[in-house]
Design a binder for these strands. Structure first.
Lengths: 348, 348
DNA sequence: GGCGAGATTGTAACCGATTACAACCAACTG
DNA sequence: CAGTTGGTTGTAATCGGTTACAATCTCGCC
């Protein structure tokens, strides 16, 4: 079952069948109709390998993420794939596992499969790897680290605005001793979130207490350990802002383990709004970063780049505004002198 | 940069280059070495589209799942992809979204991309769709619903054994009023788990109380709602076994909301052991179903089928034994007449 | 009726590999 | 030394499309 069979049945050449399939306008409506009927009757569908070879376009996009088991990514992958399929594209997902060697493998996979574009939703991409895509004239879109001036589209998250919302929410509840549990410092997005928080605190006129600025690893255990360290301080914070939801979940776990209540004793704010956050006890107040929006912009960037006829790849920049979702993990701080200290030791 | 360039540089024909790349034994070691040096020097890598077209093998496997945002799947996808890449294969992941129409699209995508095999890790696959793979001589492996006699490999989960372990654990703690929150009844694996539980209870000589057999939806909210219904009963259960971890998490949420303690007042057991379960408060006692093991067997089934020279596709069956992981969500039931009833009404 | 423009269709080269088959070569045999 | 054999290499067809270019057809118009 190939294009020749269709051509024979429709009494046309393979060229006409090809043109019909690809929506070329150079086919007379009557002929096109005949071809379509032949396709229908034979149940024909084109061999994508042959198409890719002949046309030089694979209709495959690469999607590079760090780790699909990180709950930030599944929804992103799903949205991206959904858009791709609706537009006749396939997606190859590759996990870097946060490792440069694996990242290199990911890039190689993309090149071998001749992807028509690649969305890099992680920050492990070294410039020598970027060059390899550049050399292949492959459109790229990055998350936060793109550079339209260099031909790389960018989906820019306005962390500052999101963090500001969180700080505003917390301070308006009356908190002043605000701790932060950041992500691993070798992660670009973690550094950005941290910077945004420091800036926001300063803008609010709140001094930055270094001992309240903890470092986690963007996983539950890191949040838990960091919270433990914060609880060991002389003067504990009354509110904690975490760099992502998993960290916040870990922090809440540490608090529960010591029989501290959230939000009565300590308020906790997350970042990302992963699915489970809405269903925790207490439901997590967090800054939602819409993965669907990110996926949508990333896809659009690649899709548009692919439509150009000639010339350099058009690079665009999109900006995503996170959104504070207030749930039940935040409340005013406990009254001075009571609260935490009082409850200490009353546990089981 | 194509195979001809390599051939020229190594002073051989393209056929010899191809043979060298594909590890044919018909190449003299000295020649092969020369070819390899040429490949190295030019930084050549083959065009997979051309390879697929010429050889009829795409080196792509299809992986059909129901929904990547269901926390059961990411680890499975990751493990499968990892094995595939290590063996020179690429993976196309497709989500059915539990919908027959979308499933049809998934199948079509697989056929168009000429996958060398397809792992179907969901149960929405109708027999007319299976036939399409059969017609294309495409090896298949299913999760639980395969049929080696029909040429479809199967990864069979021994739910009965896993459920038995859970029931044994709970009864040995002294529980007799045991509730079950199952999955949606239109889901094959949910029905299987339910059947296994009923059988296990009977084997233990415990009567099956229909009002304790609840139905959830394998998501958090379903578990929560089902638990609410169980708590409204005259005689509440002292232990709950859930059909998956999300359901268990929902159940625990419902309990916490009423100020019931887990495990002091009610014990909860999950199923699957998704990553987050170990980090909850309390950490969830659950039956681990290793996604890595499932992915491994599924890959092996396809990989072996692909190695056959001639003849029918060899179908195999693998059996996976789940494993009880005891954490902190289970304990002996509260003393009779006290416990739950005592605590009722003391909430906030 | 003849001519040119524009629309439609066909011919065939091409994409970059794989692989059946033929050709060649060296070593071994009788 | 001719004939065989087995190992190595090359030639060229093939996979199934796409697409540049050529060919043809259809009108409108003078």
């Amino acid at each position: 079952m190939n294009i020749q069979a269709v051509a024979d049945r429709a009494r046309v050449s393979t060229a006409t069948v090809s043109r019909t399939i690809n929506g070329s306008n150079k086919v007379a409506p009557k002929t096109a109709e005949r071809v379509r009927r032949a396709i229908e009757a034979l149940g024909y569908y084109p061999n994508t390998n042959a198409r890719a070879l002949g046309s030089g376009r694979s209709r495959i996009y690469g999607l590079i993420i760090s780790d699909i088991t990180n709950p930030f990514f599944p929804e992103l992958v799903k949205s991206f794939e959904d858009m791709a399929v609706r537009n006749g594209y396939e997606v190859i997902v590759a996990n870097t596992g946060y490792s440069p060697e694996r990242t290199e493998v990911c890039v190689q996979r993309m090149l071998e499969r001749k992807v028509d574009g690649v969305a890099v939703m992680t920050s492990e991409m070294g410039s020598h790897l970027i060059d390899r895509f550049h050399r292949g004239q492959i459109p790229m879109v990055f998350l936060d680290t793109g550079d339209p001036a260099n031909g790389i589209s960018n989906v820019l998250v306005d962390y500052a605005a999101g963090v500001d919302d969180a700080v505003e929410h917390i301070t308006s509840l009356g908190h002043t001793r605000i701790a932060f549990i950041g992500g691993p410092m070798d992660l670009a997005s973690a550094r950005t979130r941290r910077q945004a928080l420091l800036a926001s605190l300063k803008r609010k006129g709140l001094g930055v207490n270094k001992s309240l600025m903890e470092v986690g690893n963007h996983r539950i255990d890191g949040g838990r350990a960091a919270m433990d360290r914060l609880l060991a301080l002389e003067e504990r914070p009354t509110a904690v802002i975490a760099s992502n939801d998993l960290t916040a979940i870990g922090a809440i776990g540490a608090l529960h383990r010591r029989n501290l209540r959230v939000p009565e004793d300590i308020s906790v704010v997350g970042f990302d709004d992963i699915e489970i956050s809405a269903f925790l006890h207490p439901a997590l107040t967090t800054v939602r970063l819409s993965r669907a929006a990110i996926a949508d912009r990333a896809f659009q960037a690649l899709f548009r780049a692919g439509k150009r006829e000639e010339g350099p790849i058009p690079a665009v920049e999109y900006r995503i505004r996170p959104e504070l979702i207030v749930r039940n993990s935040t409340a005013p701080p406990p009254a001075k002198g009571k609260g935490i200290t009082l409850l200490k030791g009353t546990g089981e």
